[in-house]
Amino acid sequence: MDVVVWVVEGTWRACVRAARTLTPPDANLVLLHVTASDVPGAAHGAFAGLLGRGHPEHDPGHQVEELAEAAAEHLLRVAAEELGRPATTVNRHGRPEGEVIAAVDGADLLVVARDGDRSRLGPKSLGPATRFVVDHAPCPVLLVWPEQAPDLTSIPPPPPHR
């Protein structure tokens, strides 16, 4: 059984915990992180907008790229330790939602954390990237709460009938 665990800043711990406790002991686990290219892209762009400043070596985008690379490696290393089971770590680059979909092609399960409104059970439960992944994943998806889920009383009342 091939299981991909999507490791994202802020919510990764719950996914790792779910993978450790809910998947069969012989499952092949992959810890997947995507380094978003739009963040250094925005820094490159802001520098390009400063017309006439020259000095491409001052472009903050390069520094952000290096920092992002180091941060991703660190996060995956810590996630692998936390998992405490044999796993492969993969860091991809690009649009996170697209890269995750491509990475789970042929996998048997994708573990994803809910990252929308976490104050209650109910709508708007997923951020845009997670929404896209859940909508487009070519395999079963395990959606986990980043922390203890709120109880049923947190569900908002249904909208009034028209």
Binding site: D38, V39, L50, P60, V64
Partner: peptide, 20 residues
């Protein structure tokens, strides 16, 4: 743009926050 942006990225990622 040049001096603060990398520092902000580093700060966010050290805290484990999404940097975007």
């Amino acid at each position: 743009v040049v001096l603060l942006t990398p520092v902000v990225f580093a700060t966010a990622s050290r805290l484990g926050a999404r940097p975007k």
